[in-house]
Simulated assay, not measured.
Amino acid sequence: MIVITQKQYKEILDHSMQAVPDEACGLLGGIIENDIKYVKKVYLLTNTDHSPEHFSMDPKEQFAAVKDMRSNGWFMLGNFHSHPASPSRPSEEDKRLAFDPEASYFIISLMDDRNIVLKSFNISKSEVGEEKLIIEGE
């Protein structure tokens, strides 16, 4: 299970909407208590591919995010990216590039702007399981 705040959800949504028609991306830093992941900070990164179908995170921004996580005593809990025109489920490329079975992979679908969908997944050897995601008040 992973927990984010409404504010963090809005950060992910706003970043993703601003990137349209391209995919947006970022990292999730936080803590783990009693097997529950708590996101403490969302790191909004640049998709250097500038593509609506895939993303690559800016390496300098990734390094700065990981450095900030370490300085706060947090872990990298996972990442997020948007699907501007497809459902909130891992694509074949998403599965192929998922190297950490412990990570949470957030995908936010913007294909229906009246029904934005954010889901979290665990991916291991192309096996996909939806992770319980809780969005708490502020």
Results as ranks from 00 to 15, higher is better:
Pro52Ser: 11
Gly30Lys: 04
Ala19Leu: 00
Pro59Thr: 06
Leu45Trp: 01
Asp49Ile: 00
Phe80Ala: 11
Asp68Lys: 11
Phe80Leu: 14
Leu44Val: 14
Ser120Ala: 15
Ala85Val: 04
Leu110His: 07
Lys125Thr: 06
Ile36Arg: 12
Glu136Asp: 05
Leu77Gln: 01
Met1Trp: 04
Cys25Arg: 05
Glu127Asn: 12
Thr48Arg: 02
Gly129Phe: 00
Tyr38Ile: 11
Pro21Gly: 10
Gln18Thr: 00
Leu13Ile: 08
Trp74Phe: 15
Ile12Leu: 08
Ser109His: 05
Asp22Val: 05
Lys40Arg: 13
Lys7Ala: 13
Ala65Gly: 05
Arg70Ile: 04
Asn122Leu: 11
Glu138Ala: 09
Glu138Leu: 08
Tyr43His: 10
Asp58Leu: 10
Ile108Gln: 10
Ala65Asp: 13
Glu136Arg: 08
Glu138Phe: 08
Ile108Gly: 03
Ile12Ser: 09
Lys41Val: 09
Val42Lys: 00
Asn34Val: 06
Phe99Cys: 07
Thr46Ala: 08
Leu44Glu: 06
Gly137Val: 04
Gly129Lys: 09
Met57Phe: 09
Asn79Glu: 14
Glu11Trp: 02
Ala85Ser: 12
Val66Arg: 12
Phe121Cys: 12
Ala65Ser: 15
Pro59Glu: 13
Thr5Ile: 02
His83Cys: 09
Lys41Ala: 10
Lys7Gln: 09
Lys40Phe: 00
Lys119Leu: 08
Ile32Lys: 13
Met17Gly: 00
Asn47Trp: 03
Val3Tyr: 10
Asp35Asn: 15
Ala98Tyr: 00
Ser56Met: 04
His54Trp: 14
Tyr38Ser: 12
Pro90His: 09
Gly26Val: 06
Glu138Asp: 14
Asn79Thr: 12
Pro101Met: 07
Ile107Gln: 02
Met111Cys: 07
Lys60Ala: 15
Ser126Phe: 03
Ala19His: 05
Lys132Gln: 14
Arg89His: 05
Asp68Asn: 13
Phe63Gly: 07
Phe106Gly: 06
